[in-house]
Design a protein around this nucleic acid. Structure first.
Length: 372
DNA sequence: AACATACTCAACCGCCCTGTA
DNA sequence: GTACAGGGCGGTTGAGTATGT
């Protein structure tokens, strides 16, 4: 058909809009509506093409536009919707009132995409990058072979740390995927069943909101064998060994371990995850995740989901495999839950499917120790 | 202070879809 | 059925800004 572009007429202005142009456009639309975009510039006294006017209005001048940084909730929503819809920015934008497709697209390209890549996920599929998975055995071997006590080569050290980090990330994501695929039943905050089987992996990962229970932060320390962990109801309690900062409580997410302190209001921040892992890669911190059975949410646990204890997460919990221990230290006020899962005991189908990972990590206690 | 590099985001480009004559 | 106008969408660009050296 060979239609000529609408903006190739000579003499039409391009580039940044001036305040005067903005004012003309806003005034005209407020008075007459935009009507035909092509006809609008002449009617409004603008030396622009209609397309440029439409873009300026929809992306910048519209009165209902929300400006400023994206909230963590918005970030979660974008990640979740992108995992389902892909680069359908306009479709994603319909779920984020006040945000334009252009803004979301920019935010994705400049922030979220990089985060996923840094974490070893394919930003398009939201799956672990297969190239990383395929090199995992090599990375593990590399990490194992390098003896930090005898080597003074910094490059080797960084390689080792990197190998451990990548392996851990892959393993964590594997756990999350397994958790989703093996746990058909989860509950939302109203205890309504949520079928997470058909959800994309990031969904289960991203929609579990943190529950920061400040009531339990200071008095819920576990046994000494696992210092700085806590029990919150029947869920996972994770603490930062070095800081004893307020906890993030993610009943079904080991990854929650890596989240930022709640003061930063981060519910999923891959960069912070990476930073935290980086720290651990250097062996500077000792973090633990205690996973116990859980069967319901507590009164104050109003944003958490619950997974059955058959979750593969429990198969690596110290309860099952580790040197300890902590099965119930339930200091959560108002929590009357039992430590026995309503959905059945631990183990389950996930055990076999995780054998690959188990072999990879259990064969080397050092690496396993690095895991949260 | 000067320069280089990285980052952000408004704006543009070109293709596609839909409605209409 | 075809041609075209109009609008929408996703990808990309580049100027401005921030940060690092």
């Amino acid at each position: 058909m060979g239609r000529s572009p609408c903006c190739d007429e000579s003499g039409l202005k391009k580039g940044p809009w001036t305040p005067e142009e903005d004012q003309k456009l806003v005034h005209h639309i407020q008075k007459h509506g935009h009507g035909s975009w092509r006809a609008l510039p002449k009617l409004a006294g603008l030396n622009r093409c209609g397309k440029s006017c439409r873009l300026r209005w929809t992306n910048y001048l519209r009165p209902d536009i929300k400006r400023g940084k994206f909230s963590q909730e918005e970030e979660q929503t974008i990640l979740h919707l992108h995992s389902i819809l892909g680069n359908k920015w306009s479709a994603i934008a319909t779920h984020l009132p006040g945000r334009t497709d252009n803004e979301i697209k920019n935010f994705w390209n400049t922030h979220l995409k990089k985060k996923l890549i840094q974490m070893g996920f394919d930003p398009m599929t939201h799956q672990p990058r297969t190239d990383l998975v395929s090199t995992l055995p090599y990375l593990i071997a590399l990490a194992s072979m390098m003896d930090t006590s005898s080597s003074i080569d910094e490059h080797a050290l960084s390689l080792q740390a990197e190998a451990i980090q990548m392996a851990k990330l892959q393993y964590l994501h594997y756990l999350l995927q397994s958790s989703s695929s093996n746990s058909n039943l989860a509950l939302d905050q109203q205890n309504n069943p949520i079928n997470i089987t058909n959800m994309e992996p990031p969904f289960s990962l991203l929609n579990v909101k943190e529950n920061i229970n400040t009531n339990n932060n200071n008095n819920n320390n576990g046994p000494s064998s696992f210092p700085h962990h806590h029990h919150h109801g029947n869920g996972i309690l994770i603490d930062d060994d070095s800081s004893c900062q307020p906890l993030h409580y993610h009943p079904n997410l080991l990854l929650s371990h890596f989240l930022d302190p709640p003061s930063q209001q981060v519910s999923f921040n891959s960069q912070s995850c990476l930073n935290n892992i980086n720290e651990q890669g250097q062996g500077s911190t000792t973090n633990y995740a205690i996973i116990s059975q859980m069967d319901h949410t507590t009164a104050d646990d109003n944003s958490s989901w619950i997974l059955p204890s058959s979750s593969p997460l429990s198969s690596i919990a110290p309860n099952n495999n580790g040197p300890s221990t902590t099965t119930s230290n339930n200091n959560n006020p108002g929590d009357t839950s039992s430590t026995t899962s309503s959905y059945g005991g631990g183990g389950g189908p996930a055990s076999s499917s995780s054998s690959y990972w188990s072999e990879l990590f259990l064969v080397d206690p050092t690496i396993m120790h690095e895991l949260p």
